[in-house]
Write a protein that binds this DNA or RNA. Structure first.
Lengths: 340, 340
DNA sequence: CTGAAAGCGCTTACAG
DNA sequence: CTGAAAGCGCTTACAG
């Protein structure tokens, strides 16, 4: 049977309060007493019970993370990075995948509460805007320290990238290569900023936006990005509106699109130039190698962790709902058809 | 402030014992009382505190999972599946990524103990055989319920696939296409069985095993499978030992190898037929689409979860260290050059 | 310095 | 059926 603080107290002939003071390193304990207690602790192989401590201290040293899926390199990598960095601070990560399913989202919210996590990281939600808002509000109302990788709410501390600016850079890049008929495939899971960047770039370059060339993906329900990209690319081609280049809101969508184009007998980048987003591992290995935008995942994870820990451990400080924006980097490879 | 059982009891004008009985689904509660309490629970948004429960029940309802990395579709998918299935049983998953780093492995072991997890799932270790053995033995000595996806130890309950048989099938497939010079690239993270299957098939087909065509990957330290596959493929070609086909122990390695071949001016499958393993999402989207072996991840996750939960919740039953082996499925696509 | 006591939020006999 | 009470293993004022 595991020894408790009582066993130690009895054996050392002191009170449990004294034992508590010893294990918590309070220097009010007389040296001899401390040594006596320490000896008994070792003898009985006593380890304080975490659950009891948690109950009193109101701190679990656990951080919750909400993410749509782990079978996706970007989120998996983000989660792994965060997990390892948290470990250095003495925290443990509780990952909850939601599969963009409202029911599962709800369960995940309950789990977060049950487990009494000290803070929450929102990697991405996928419920659609209204449900997202409710979800975040429930968290906000709960009053728990929060960091999000997407600015769902003004009151939310956010760590993210300059997705709009980098998307503009992508489209500028395509335009500089001579393209004017540029399509777009997005997904609600990657936010609206890429689409805005796409629109802005076109407008600034005085190219009319053709809504028939855009699939926002704000409504679709999909399981796999690459299949989605494949389907969307085919749909765009069937619609018979000419385009020579396409910007996809993540690499998996881009790879699906490329596959679709090739299946239809087109060649990338000659017939269709393609650009993705994220620079997943596969991007440089795909054929053609993918032109894409690299997110500094490790640094972003580190930033989120640092901010969250500070919020938790210095609750008295005023914590503004600041937004930390990381620069992205356009990585030009074969799929956009640039001379490299 | 978070609502407690007392708040609910006061609001519903019942005792905390009754509230407890309601939240624990004890059917001794009168229907009207239950409904009244349920209403208050929802109104107050009450969620039972796990720490308090844990203290009494001596159970954290947390399962630990050790996995080398999450930025990999196979493991990420496995982890996500396990996490969601555990949630149905009321358990939470604590994922520890080790990055195949012995120091991190050690920390993960301590974390598992501190957190008092109820059981542990070993997805894969990556320390090398001796360290693996020590790791598993520490877990076994601790006496905690354990399920592994690799049979590191006889005393270990294992859920895995018939990797040897399916690897034989792969090589048989290549041989049936006329290949006799077949190379192999493995990794210690995917075990030795694929290599054994490769060797067995060659032997049974009376094709001498040429060690120069094999890279076991039992020693290498590598971060990214695809880069590893790329490097190995180049190395094999430089060694100037002729081969016309190659079997890679996972899809990422295979994709890296294909990229290498194409970069060297060879064509897949004409010049080199390539087969991978796992059937990740990307496999069907790569060009050429990858011939590979599909693992039934969901079913394997489900099996591991069921077995582990049973070990935890029925500790008095005799639990043999059984091995559950799942069948794999050869998926023939373009990269092996078969007529489809 | 040290100890008696209250209390964290639950579950579980046990009495009514 | 329902409630009062004990108790899980700790920490933390507070009294001495």
């Amino acid at each position: 049977m595991k020894a408790t603080i009582k066993d130690v107290a009895r054996e050392a002939k002191v009170s449990i309060a004294t034992v508590s003071n010893v294990i918590n390193g309070k220097d009010i304990v007389k040296k001899e007493t401390r040594e006596k207690v320490t000896r008994v602790i070792e003898k009985l192989n006593y380890v304080p019970d975490q659950a009891a401590r948690t109950m009193i201290r109101k701190k679990t040293n656990t951080i919750g993370m909400v993410v749509p899926s782990l079978s996706n390199e970007f989120w998996g990598s983000l989660a792994g990075n965060i997990q390892r960095q948290l470990l250095n601070f003495g925290y443990t990560l509780l990952i909850l995948t939601t599969e963009s399913d409202p029911k599962v989202e709800q369960i995940s919210l309950n789990t977060l509460k049950e487990r009494n996590v000290d803070g929450v990281i929102i990697a991405s939600l996928g419920l659609g805007s209204k449900a997202d808002k409710r979800y975040v509000e429930a968290l906000l109302e709960w009053g728990i320290p929060l960091v999000s990788f997407h600015p769902y709410e003004k009151k939310l501390t956010t760590v993210w990238g300059d997705y709009m600016a980098s998307s503009m850079e992508v489209v500028d890049h395509l335009i500089s290569l001579g393209h004017t008929k540029i399509a777009y495939i997005g997904s609600y899971l990657s936010g609206i900023e890429r689409e805005l960047g796409y629109r802005n770039s076109l407008m600034l370059n005085r190219i009319p936006v053709d809504e028939r060339l855009m699939i926002s993906g704000q409504e679709e329900k999909f399981e796999f990005f690459s299949q989605y990209g494949y389907d969307c690319a085919k749909k765009l081609c069937k619609d018979n509106v000419e385009f020579t280049a396409i910007f996809c809101s993540n690499d998996l969508i881009a790879i699906g699109a490329i596959k679709a184009f090739e299946d239809m007998g087109m060649h990338v980048p000659t017939d269709k130039a393609v650009v993705g987003f994220d620079d997943i591992n596969m991007a440089s290995l795909y054929r053609p190698a993918l032109t894409t935008v690299r997110q500094p995942i490790t640094e972003m994870a580190s930033s989120a962790v640092t901010i969250l820990i500070e919020q938790i451990e210095k609750p008295d400080t005023d914590h503004f709902a600041k937004t930390v924006t990381f620069p992205m980097k356009l990585i030009i490879r074969e799929s956009s058809g640039a001379q490299i």
